[in-house]
Design a protein around this nucleic acid. Structure first.
Lengths: 251, 251
DNA sequence: CGCTATTTTGAAAGGGCTCAAGAGTAGTGG
DNA sequence: CCACTACTCTTGAGCCCTTTCAAAATAGCG
């Protein structure tokens, strides 16, 4: 069975035999698509991590349930994301569809065989793991030090950037997730999220397009949003100085 | 020059030629040791990530300075830890010695060549990256949802586990870092850290061994510490039920 | 149109933060 | 040996932001 799997991996992924692009997307391209209904889980925390998944369409939330029953969302998955790479035996979290989602899956062994046999795939995997770690770091900084307003603005700014980089001509972010999802992701309560957004509307920073569609938000003042997000990069200049000070102090 | 590096990598690491153990530690073993004084930086956030490091002795803090000048510590490094793997072009954070530290370094290219040529090394790298992601997840959960007391207890518990697994016969944790370091790591202020520890001493959970050495802490009631840390695992049973409920609710 | 789920809004309480001062601990040099 | 200084840590009081609890408003859906 092991050998069969391995052979299949070599056949379907080709390891370069078919001249496929050396990227992960190509690996999944030939797998059948699967669909998840909103609220349906892709896998559960604690389950044996048998597959790696690529998200083709839709959005998923990745979360853990803690002892008091609350939910902590550690990230969202969007089209193009791969989930399950940086895991060992078991899934560390549950992944659940927010919208209807289209995904493809690959058995772990098959995935690993393909990656082991291709430099290009290895680089792609490494790059994605690096991005994942960078995102985790940013989230730690956000949770450790930012106010509710800064968290919300950082969140919107991230989605605004995504929308613009995907060619959107208008500064409008479509948020598939609920206010509760945002709260669980940002380490806040739903009330604080709601209140903060109301306050941002009051300041003229953003606006809800249509009361009917509270998930579409137009950013009226992107510059102000960036400021309120509170990670101005003009502090980089200060860092060396601060650290130099620290060293001087210590000696 | 590229070829030289690559050849050197193959020579020194052997890719199995010399039968070295297929682990990362072996990769670094032949590099010269370097020493860092307390407070000295190993590298700075934003620097080009030219090397991978292994910590041989001592403790380092890994942190970022945010725009308002505060410091967010995202982790500590101890003997046996490798730093710099899950990075791309630049270091995302500064790494700085807390105690005198002994480290070894390997040029990035050399490291990558060695890893590319050895299945064993690849597995080791993957395992470490997985651990790093798991730790980041745990930290996000801690920062998003735990009270000051829970954070402190979680922190002590982690160090207690480490001490016991390293063969310590007494429930004593030696904390090389300052209260300020703990605060910046746990997303609290130094005052809150201090007050919380005082309160825990009052409850009889722990004790500071010697006023002279405030960094040595004896855990008087490990069980109570675990409870107060607030991540009882008896909630796993509930998770399925809760999630099943969620699905029922949605349909 | 009526029901349910989600979101918003309000008032009160609490936990951690800020500001400020005090205590304990090296390290230095007379 | 002790005064002096610098630094870390502790303790105290008041305040502010977020949470909690409660209810109203709005949206989604059969």
């Amino acid at each position: 069975m092991f050998l069969t799997d391995y052979a299949k991996a070599l056949n379907t992924t080709g390891a370069g035999l078919y001249g496929e692009p050396d990227c992960l997307h190509g690996l999944f391209a030939k797998q059948p698509a699967e669909y998840l209904a909103p609220g349906q889980a892709l896998f559960f925390e604690g389950d044996e991590a048998r597959h790696i998944f690529e998200v083709i369409e839709g959005t998923l939330r990745v979360f853990r349930i803690i002892s008091d029953g609350r939910r902590v969302i550690t990230g969202f998955l969007h089209a193009g994301d791969i989930v399950g790479v940086s895991l060992r035996n078991d899934y560390l979290y549950t992944a659940e569809a927010i919208t209807t989602a289209k995904i493809r899956r690959l058995p772990r062994r098959q995935f690993e065989a393909a990656v082991a046999s291709s430099d290009g795939l290895r680089q792609d995997v490494l790059a994605r793991v690096c991005d994942e770690m960078a995102a985790a770091q940013d989230q730690m900084v956000l949770l450790a030090s930012k106010s509710a307003e800064e968290r919300i603005c950082t969140f919107f700014q991230k989605y605004l950037r995504r929308a613009l980089s995907e060619g959107s001509l208008q500064p409008v972010v479509e948020l598939p997730m609920s206010r509760q999802d945002m709260a669980d992701y940002l380490g806040l309560t739903i009330e604080t999220v709601s209140r903060t957004i109301t306050r941002l509307i009051g300041k003229g920073v953003l606006n809800v397009l249509d009361p009917t569609a509270r998930h579409s938000i137009r950013i009226e003042r992107p510059g102000m949003l960036a400021q309120l997000a509170g990670d101005d990069d003009d502090c980089i200049d200060m860092r060396r100085d601060l650290q130099a000070q620290g060293e001087r102090r210590r000696h």
